[in-house]
Simulated scan of single mutants.
Amino acid sequence: MDREHRLKRLRFRAWHRGVKEADLLIGGFFDAHAQGWNDAEIELFEEILEEQDVDIMAWAMGTAAVPVRYEGTIMSALKTLNYVPISR
């Protein structure tokens, strides 16, 4: 599968998690960062998407320890939370 098709598929999965909060966090993260990812980072994000939303959100918010296999640049960027749109 080519890169663009793979990213489109990942974007859909990131924005359709089933819970609005997870959609905003994971989808917003994808939109903010995915274009700069290399193939290894895309593969890692695909693996992260297989995890439960509550776990991904806990890792991002720092309320649960990140599994060693996910530690690195993607998880560090996910933890910044500056990509989540906030309406006032």
Rank of each mutant, 00 (worst) to 15 (best):
A58F: 04
A40H: 14
E51K: 03
R69C: 14
E71A: 14
L44Y: 01
N82V: 05
T73G: 15
A65P: 02
L78V: 13
H16A: 11
G28W: 04
A34C: 00
L25E: 05
I74A: 04
D23R: 02
R11C: 00
W15Q: 07
M75G: 03
D53E: 13
G27A: 11
E43C: 09
T73Q: 11
M57A: 09
D53L: 06
D55S: 13
K79S: 04
E41Y: 06
N38F: 00
E51C: 06
A22G: 09
A65I: 08
L81N: 07
D53F: 06
L78N: 09
R69W: 05
F30A: 00
L81S: 09
A32W: 02
N82G: 13
R17F: 13
F29Y: 14
F12I: 12
L49A: 12
E50A: 10
F12T: 13
T80R: 15
E47T: 11
I42T: 05
V66I: 14
L44C: 03
K79R: 07
L78H: 12
E46R: 10
A32D: 04
W59G: 02
D53W: 06
P67D: 15
W59T: 05
T63V: 09
A64T: 06
D39Q: 14
G72M: 12
L25P: 00
R17G: 05
T73R: 15
F45W: 09
M75F: 08
L24H: 08
A14E: 01
H33F: 02
Y70T: 12
M57Y: 07
I42Q: 08
L78C: 12
A64R: 07
V66G: 02
E51L: 07
E51W: 08
D23S: 07
T80A: 13
H16M: 09
H33W: 06
E41Q: 14
R13H: 10
G72F: 10
E41W: 02
P67Y: 15
F45P: 08
V54Y: 10
L78D: 12
D23W: 02
V66Y: 06
V19G: 07
H16F: 10
V54T: 14
A58W: 01
F30Q: 02
I26L: 03
V54I: 11
W37G: 00
E47R: 08
G28R: 05
G28C: 07
K79N: 02
H16P: 02
M75S: 06
F30Y: 00
A22D: 14
E50F: 10
I26V: 09
A34F: 01
A64E: 11
N82P: 08
V66N: 00
P67N: 15
T80H: 15
L78E: 11
M61T: 10
Q52M: 15
E50Y: 13
G36T: 04
G36Y: 01
D39G: 06
A32P: 00
L81H: 05
M75H: 11
G62R: 04
G36E: 02
A64L: 05
E46Q: 15
D31M: 06
T63R: 05
H16Y: 09
V66R: 01
W59S: 07
Q35E: 03
W59K: 04
A34H: 00
W15T: 01
D55E: 11
V68K: 12
R69E: 15
E41A: 14
T63F: 05
M61H: 14
A77F: 09
